[in-house]
């Protein structure tokens, strides 16, 4: 029998989150597929349908960890459920997603199960029997290569690995009733309220603001730039939303909107993995940033090393004269 490895599958109200299908593709990597038997852990209440769907589409064996107290997410309850399963399975590896729900449970699970913790991974390779992983430092300016030793819990940056949901054979599903016991947290049901910003999905050109835009007066330059194009819309990084430069509904990235316009202007955006995951499929990427080593220049087609608020007016004037 092969050693075991686990995936932590996120669901909300019985719907599997996108990042879970990305984790499934890890189990397809040749060295992982050959070395381990994979078990996907889904915790919740009334999740049999989600568990079956995941097993059918990925071919991975699924343990549905069920309890009434797991109806809504709490770190406390879910760590209790996963650790119960981990004690039984004794996996060499556990992979979770580097998402708000994944990062709520995985670090605590590492302490409870006494496993090493390797967060925020973006790439995994094996050379000479050693497993190497890569993650970013300084919002993507530096790559850190680390060696991973088992037993360990790893979190995987969403939006980096492809989705896998095309297995030919279904995996087995086991329902495991968990006795969560007493938990102190009282979690409520998640609340879904779609934000403004639907125009971003149809826009052909997106002019996106980052922290480097500096203040709301400078947003005028971005709006003028957008008005040079038809079917253009304004978007922003998380930092731009936090600064009030654009509405949260216009946040582009893993926890915001995923867009793929024909042309994307990244203005004063550094290029963190969380932002890039939302716009890397834009056909042409223009980056304007005063820092030549900003990681956005590594994925841009054309880059202008300059101050946003100074360059854009000069550019607009040049276009208008033509």
């Amino acid at each position: 029998m092969k050693p075991k490895a686990c995936l932590i599958i996120e669901q909300i109200a019985g719907n599997i989150r996108e990042c879970a299908w990305e984790l499934a593709s890890l189990a397809q990597l040749e060295f992982f597929r050959e070395t381990y038997d994979w078990i996907a852990l889904i915790a919740g209440n009334n999740i049999e349908r989600a568990a079956t769907l995941f097993a059918e589409k990925t071919g991975i064996e699924v343990y549905a960890l069920c309890d009434r107290l797991l109806e809504n997410f709490s770190g406390e309850g879910f760590v209790r459920a996963y650790s119960t399963a981990v004690q039984q399975i004794k996996p060499y590896f556990i992979f979770a997603s580097h998402t708000p729900l994944g990062c709520d449970v995985a670090p605590a699970l590492a302490i409870v199960c006494n496993m090493d913790y390797f967060p925020s991974l973006q790439c995994l390779t094996r050379k000479n029997e050693i497993l190497f992983a890569y993650r970013e430092r300084l919002n993507g300016k530096i790559n850190e290569e680390i060696t991973i030793t088992e037993p360990a819990i790893c979190t995987i940056m969403p939006g980096v690995f492809p989705i896998f949901n095309t297995a030919k054979l279904s995996g087995k599903v086991s329902i495991v009733n968990i006795d969560t016991g007493k938990i102190k947290s009282i979690p409520a049901a998640p609340n879904y309220s779609p934000q403004s910003g639907a125009e971003l999905s149809n826009a052909e050109v997106i002019v996106s603001a980052g922290r480097g835009v500096g203040n709301s007066e400078n947003m005028e330059h971005l709006r003028n730039l957008a008005s040079l194009f038809s079917r253009a819309a304004i978007g922003g990084s998380r930092a731009a939303c936090d600064m009030g430069l654009v509405d949260y509904g216009l946040q582009i990235g893993v926890t915001g909107r995923i867009v793929s316009p024909k042309l994307y202007f990244a203005c004063g955006i550094s290029g963190s993995a969380q932002h890039i995951a939302g716009m890397k499929n834009a056909r042409t990427i223009v980056a304007i940033n005063r820092d030549e080593s900003a990681p956005i220049f590594r994925i841009a087609d054309i880059g202008v090393i300059d101050e946003v608020e100074k360059f854009i007016p000069v550019f607009i004037e040049f276009v208008q004269k033509k």
Binding site: L101, P187, S193
Partner: peptide, 8 residues
């Protein structure tokens, strides 16, 4: 959880 999904 994401910009459209919150939980108390």
């Amino acid at each position: 959880i994401d910009v459209s999904t919150r939980q108390s």
